[in-house]
């Protein structure tokens, strides 16, 4: 029972000689909080995209419970990625209530814990701030089928109080549901505070 990246290598088209990732190994257990740090351009975000199935590795493989990770049409993925820029991860023409419901009905408890106000559900993304949108993205990603949550610099653009609130919520939720969390950040202080283990890329 784990999410595992084995010997992952990835390069973007026509960049074969300068791969973003080369031979990276990573294992994430349920209930674990793994921190991922490293300088910009080392492929932290790319690694997250590979692990969540958004890109396929050029060599190596991603295993979920020992079987290769596949994203099937019409079936929720149990690995969810929390994008770095929430304003890109929501459809600008859709009221947020509908964006939120995309992964099925959302528990009232989640909305309360994330302090999502009911009137926000009728608004459009352009009418809310980045931090408010990120709350929607978190609620949307935490559907029942989700077992691993990959947070790619998810709170980097938020003020400290909001960051602290969101992390407190995510840690509690991860604990409750035995989620595996991968936390990518440039801030070592944040990773030391949050994670049970830290891997440097």
């Amino acid at each position: 029972m784990s999410l595992e990246g084995q010997n992952l290598t990835f390069f973007y088209p026509k960049k074969k000689h300068s791969p973003v990732l080369q031979g990276v190994d990573l294992t994430l257990e349920p209930g674990e909080r793994l921190g991922l740090s490293g300088p910009s351009g080392r492929g932290k975000s790319t690694l997250c995209r590979l692990l969540a199935g958004y890109e396929r590795p050029k060599s190596g493989q991603v295993l979920l419970d020992g079987a290769p990770l596949t994203v099937k049409r019409g079936r929720p993925n149990s690995v969810q990625l929390l994008w770095q820029n929430p304003e890109l991860a929501v459809d600008p023409l859709l009221p947020l209530g509908r964006t939120l419901a995309e992964g099925g009905p959302v528990e009232e408890r989640l909305l309360e814990a994330l302090q999502i106000r009911p009137e926000w559900l009728r608004r459009y993304p352009a009418e809310l701030s980045g931090g408010e949108l990120q709350r929607f993205c978190i609620a949307r990603a935490l559907r029942p089928a989700t077992r691993y949550l990959l947070c790619d610099e998810s709170t980097a653009m938020l003020d400290l109080i909001t960051q602290a609130q969101l992390w407190a919520f995510l840690l509690e939720e991860a604990e409750r549901r035995n989620l595996g969390l991968l936390i990518v950040s440039h801030s070592d202080a944040l990773l030391r505070r949050l994670c049970t283990r830290i891997q440097v890329l």
């Binding site: 890109l88 991860a89 459809d91």
Partner: peptide
């Protein structure tokens, strides 16, 4: 677009994506 990829990973069907995201 990221929001369409996210919808795919959330298990939204092809038809629903076409209607909800592409059409508008």
């Amino acid at each position: 677009a990221p929001y369409i990829r996210v919808a795919e990973h959330l298990g939204v069907s092809r038809l629903a994506i076409a209607r909800r995201h592409f059409l508008p």
